[in-house]
């Protein structure tokens, strides 16, 4: 049943939104194209970060450092269900959305999107936000200096999200 939900969700959203908008009197075609026009600038904004991350990871993997890291920590991480290749993503996720997106793109490419690592990475990327960036931007904009317990609470939320992602991915997709 749950698999059905996921299968139907996207197609229903894609036809449902324009239909609903049309009923509400929105100029749907015009609104759609105006929104779609923002995609290319967005991709261009991501591009430099992708290059930076892909090149750094390329050296890290090509030189054999990734294999070494995975060999030394993977047995430990396996026991908690966290595949080694996901580790860089988990560490960078709270720091930068674009950098972690680059790491995810690389992970999906190297481990495969339908592998345990690929699925877990996808859920991690989608389920938490760039805590440090949000805190810096929001507090900075109004001149707050002392942020008190906001950062620990945000990071605790991230940690809870990671743990939940591991547990949920294992339960949802079964042991693999």
């Amino acid at each position: 049943m749950l698999a059905q939900v996921t299968t139907w969700l996207i197609p229903l959203i894609i036809v449902g939104i324009p239909l609903w908008g049309w009923i509400r009197g929105v100029d749907v075609y015009e609104a759609f194209t105006r929104g779609a026009a923002e995609a290319f600038p967005l991709a261009l904004r991501i591009l430099p970060f992708m290059v930076a991350i892909f090149v750094a990871l390329g050296i890290f993997r090509g030189g054999g450092a990734m294999d070494w890291m995975i060999r030394s920590i993977d047995p430990v991480l396996r026991t908690v269900g966290l595949p080694g290749p996901v580790v860089p993503l988990v560490l960078v996720r709270p720091l930068s959305g674009t950098a972690s997106l680059g790491l995810l793109a690389d992970l999906l490419r190297s481990a495969g999107p339908d592998s345990l690592a690929g699925r877990l990475g996808s859920v991690v990327q989608g389920s938490t936000d760039t805590t440090f960036y949000v805190l810096t931007l929001y507090f900075g904009s109004v001149g707050i200096r002392r942020t008190r317990y906001a950062a620990p609470v945000g990071l605790l939320g991230d940690a809870a999200g990671f743990v939940a992602a591991i547990v949920i991915v294992h339960l949802w997709f079964g042991a693999s």
Binding site: V5, G112, P113, S122, G126, G161, I168
Partner: peptide, 17 residues
């Protein structure tokens, strides 16, 4: 990257969030 079901992670993501 050639996933068989690209959107299959949507519901697990919502649960984790």
């Amino acid at each position: 990257s050639g996933s068989r079901a690209p959107a299959e992670i949507v519901v697990p993501t919502i649960l984790a969030t």
